[in-house]
């Protein structure tokens, strides 16, 4: 049995289409990522799976339980962490955790082993009101609360948005360790670089799936030649590369420009072109695409259609 099965789900809010025909399966024990910008439909999809929202059309099930008819069963076995920090800000860390433990009919003690690694990091502040925690600590507390009843499946809606790079890294380390315990995890994120930390990902854009696969396979399907081009002036380099007649796309990535092309050309040819435009310190090297390159490629293709 699959952990999650989604058949042809549609959802819209008035005139805005949030989800348009989503089909997806997640295996037991997988760390599955929903990757996409705001407005891709990630939150709607997670809410439907967490039994918080009815789809307009289609059907979804969690471990065989239907999200509409058997939602009570799902609520017993699922943990959910909403996108917005939504614990009680006027209760302390410990009071929050105790409260969530008791509404699920359990205690902190009973499942302490599960949250130990995370909770220990915030335990020194357990008397502090949740509203006064830093962003990273809030996320850890929220995750502890979502885990306290030992769920079989965990839905995390953008847990790392607005969190700094260090806390994000720590958070993903925690997710990896939870995967080891056998918990199925569905996590959404707008940060493309986090895709590579998932077992499988769904790339989402405007309510549709661009692709669903392992990060490696998605990268394998990239169908352009990709070069990282560097020169002294980044901004002018982007503009000039777009005028190069063999360029499919040119976008900045860090301190380089990723140039995608379908036509073969010799590097000297481009070097000459750029030198002619007055660029200095030019380097051109072929590179492997990342998920973000793939995403942008798929996005452009969808827009062209």
């Amino acid at each position: 049995m699959k952990a999650v099965e989604i058949h042809n789900i549609y959802k819209s809010y008035k005139e805005v289409k949030a989800l348009s025909g989503i089909n997806l399966q997640v295996k037991k024990g997988e760390l599955f990522g929903l990757i996409g910008p705001d407005g891709a439909g990630k939150t709607s999809l997670i809410r439907i799976l967490a039994t918080l929202l009815y789809p307009d059309e289609g059907q979804a099930s969690i471990f065989g339980w239907d999200t509409i008819d058997e939602f009570r069963e799902i609520r017993k076995i699922a943990g959910y962490m909403p996108g917005r920090f939504s614990l009680y800000q006027d209760l302390s860390v410990e009071e929050n955790l105790n409260f969530y433990a008791s509404i699920f009919g359990t205690t902190i003690k009973e499942n302490y082993h599960l949250i130990k690694d995370i909770y220990q990091q915030i335990e020194p502040f357990k008397k502090r009101l949740a509203g006064r925690l830093s962003g990273g600590m809030k996320q850890k507390l929220a995750l502890s609360c979502a885990l306290i009843h030992k769920p079989d499946i965990l839905f995390l809606d953008e847990p790392t948005t607005g969190v700094d790079a260090v806390s994000r890294k720590e958070f993903w380390e925690i997710l990896k360790s939870l995967e080891q315990v056998g918990i199925t995890i569905i996590v959404s994120t707008p940060y493309m670089d986090e895709a590579e930390l998932c077992d499988r990902v769904a790339l989402m854009q405007q309510g549709r799936l661009l692709d669903v696969d392992t990060p490696a396979n998605i990268i394998g399907k990239y169908d352009h030649d990709l070069y990282a081009v560097e020169s002294k002036t980044l901004h002018r380099l982007i503009k000039d590369l777009r005028t190069f007649d063999k360029t499919t796309s040119a976008f900045p990535f860090g301190d380089t420009v990723h140039l995608a092309t379908n036509e073969t050309f010799r590097r000297q040819e481009l070097d000459k072109f750029l030198s002619g435009k007055g660029h200095e310190n030019i380097t051109i090297k072929p590179i492997e695409p990342g998920i973000e390159d793939c995403f942008m490629n798929l996005m452009r293709r969808q827009n062209d259609q």
């Binding site: 910008p37 705001d38 854009q205 995403f295």
Partner: peptide, 8 residues
């Protein structure tokens, strides 16, 4: 650019 798609 928080939450904005990679091209935009």
């Amino acid at each position: 650019t928080s939450g904005v798609d990679p091209i935009t």
